[in-house]
């Protein structure tokens, strides 16, 4: 019998789930190797758990979700988080540095109906996680690698080095050194295949901090390249704003 797969959504944009559907030709190979038992983005047909593998997208932002993830963990042999929201809290973790009550009062006509937490937190803050796949969104080659490794029981090849390693292997010319473009590549984890630098753009940090991010050395360089303190704060206040190295680099303490 094939192992079973469930895909879950929490606070997120669905982009990582769509990456699964975007596997195209490999999607058939995936369904050949694993039984999709619960994946609401793809099908309304649902098979009851427990599941061999759960992929979890999104962060925990409501009391209800904080309970729901416990149930999913109980129903999953292995639980892998997919994407920046699930692994660091996502862009919505900016609420962690602001007043959520004030937000709800400003945005909603009847804020008393809103039940939300003051923070957006990664799944690993709530339950034990077997692997965290980075990215906003995740990279489909990395997802295939991770699921293939899981099925065969080997260590996945998911590097934790900087994006620079991917630029150099691809032969991409460094946008910082050759063009003076500010780039978060040196402090950001590889995985995207150096997508933005390959198109002459600086890295936006979608894959979060690399294994040993030296942001305090990179920040003076960003300043030399013409970025103000506010610009630097904004550079680190995106999809992985909740991760500790980027949170500190942005001055959120």
């Amino acid at each position: 019998m094939k192992p079973t797969l469930a895909v879950w959504k929490f606070a997120s944009c669905d982009g990582c789930q769509l990456t699964i559907l975007d596997l195209e030709d490999d999607l058939l190979a995936l369904t050949g190797a694993i039984e999709i038992s619960d994946f609401r983005e793809a099908t309304s047909a649902v098979v009851e758990g427990p599941y061999d593998l759960s992929l979890v997208e999104g962060s925990i932002t409501t009391p209800h979700d904080a309970e729901r993830i416990q149930e999913i963990r109980r129903n999953s042999k292995a639980l892998i988080t997919i994407g920046a929201c699930a692994t660091s809290g996502g862009i919505q973790a900016l609420r962690n540095f602001a007043d959520v009550d004030e937000f709800t009062r400003v945005v909603y006509a009847s804020p008393q109906y809103i039940s939300t937490l003051a923070t957006s937190t990664p799944i690993s803050d709530h339950v034990s996680v077997d692997f965290e796949l980075r990215g906003c969104p995740i990279d489909k080659r990395q997802l295939l690698e991770l699921v293939s490794a899981f099925l065969i029981g080997r260590k996945p090849r998911i590097p934790t080095t900087s994006v620079c390693t991917e630029c150099k292997r691809r032969g991409v010319v460094c946008v910082t050194v050759a063009h003076g473009t500010p780039c978060l590549g040196p402090v950001t984890q590889a995985g995207c295949g150096a997508l933005c630098p390959a198109y002459n753009r600086g890295c936006f940090g979608c894959f979060g901090p690399m294994e040993s991010p030296n942001t305090s050395s990179l920040i003076p360089l960003l300043r030399r390249l013409g970025r103000s303190d506010t610009d630097v704060e904004r550079l680190f206040s995106t999809f992985n704003a909740g991760s500790e190295p980027f949170r500190k680099a942005a001055g959120h303490g």
């Binding site: 995936l30 050949g32 293939s148 150099k168 460094c174 590549g185 040196p186 030296n214 050395s217």
Partner: peptide, 30 residues
């Protein structure tokens, strides 16, 4: 070390640095 980014750029542009690692891959069907 306070300045070094550990980004690996120096070693990868170096014409003599030869470090490599060996990795195994497998397909979904195994």
């Amino acid at each position: 070390a306070s300045r070094c980014l550990s980004c690996t750029n120096c070693t990868l542009v170096c014409p003599t640095c030869f470090c490599s690692s060996v990795e195994d891959t497998s397909d979904l069907a195994g």
